[in-house]
């Protein structure tokens, strides 16, 4: 039934295209970089198209795509580690104007805090919160027990609450005027 197969293939393409923004958001939450996110998304979609026969259950397309994206991200992460520049690290931690700008915007603050979470927690919290993936699906995609999903998620959220609170205090200090008018 080549006609039917062709139709199914087109249908898959359509659903893939519709998933693009979703994948981009997830990738962005993991790497906090627009260019890398775009590359990861393209990479994942190309792989998905090439290996579309591996998708057994069309209803699980999102989960399947997430798995592919996770693999792409891990490949990227591994390759990046070899070229890690210690100077970047220094800059990242310093109180630069960029840092201050990041702290001035709530959304940037959150993205920044998420980017600093340990990899394993960041994956879980972004899959659940940004993507709305169920615990069971996260467990299956990441191949970890559901209890681990729950504990990582909870730890991630508590760390985020704490970091955002700390950042807010830092911002409050930064915004305090240093100059005072004296008569």
């Amino acid at each position: 039934m080549p006609v039917f197969k062709g139709l199914l293939q087109k249908q898959l393409h359509n659903r893939l295209a519709a998933s693009r923004n979703r994948l981009y958001r997830l990738a962005y939450a993991w790497c906090n970089d627009a260019t890398v996110s775009d590359d990861l998304t393209q990479d994942a979609m190309t792989k998905a198209l090439r290996n579309s026969r591996q998708l057994k259950d069309p209803a699980k397309l999102d989960q399947w795509l997430n798995g592919i994206l996770i693999n792409c991200w891990r490949d990227h992460y591994r390759s990046r580690k070899e070229h890690e520049n210690i100077d970047d690290y220094e800059l990242y931690e310093n109180d630069t104007p960029e840092q201050q700008w990041v702290q001035s915007d709530q959304r940037q603050r959150i993205r920044h805090a998420i980017a600093k979470l340990p990899e394993s927690q960041r994956m879980v919290v972004t899959l659940v919160d940004i993507d709305g993936t169920s615990y069971a699906d996260v467990a299956e995609t990441m191949q970890i027990p559901i209890g681990t999903v729950m504990s990582r998620l909870c730890r991630a959220r508590k760390t985020l609450i704490q970091r955002l609170q700390d950042l807010r205090q830092v911002t409050a200090t930064v915004n305090t005027p240093y100059l005072r008018r004296v008569k």
Binding site: R25, Y28, S37, D38, R111, I114, D129, R157, L160
Partner: peptide
């Protein structure tokens, strides 16, 4: 606190669109 955080995380990426 937890619910607010969940909302904030969701909102932080909601307006992102792939180029």
């Amino acid at each position: 606190k937890l619910a607010q955080l969940t909302e904030q995380v969701r909102g932080a990426y909601a307006d992102l669109e792939a180029p």
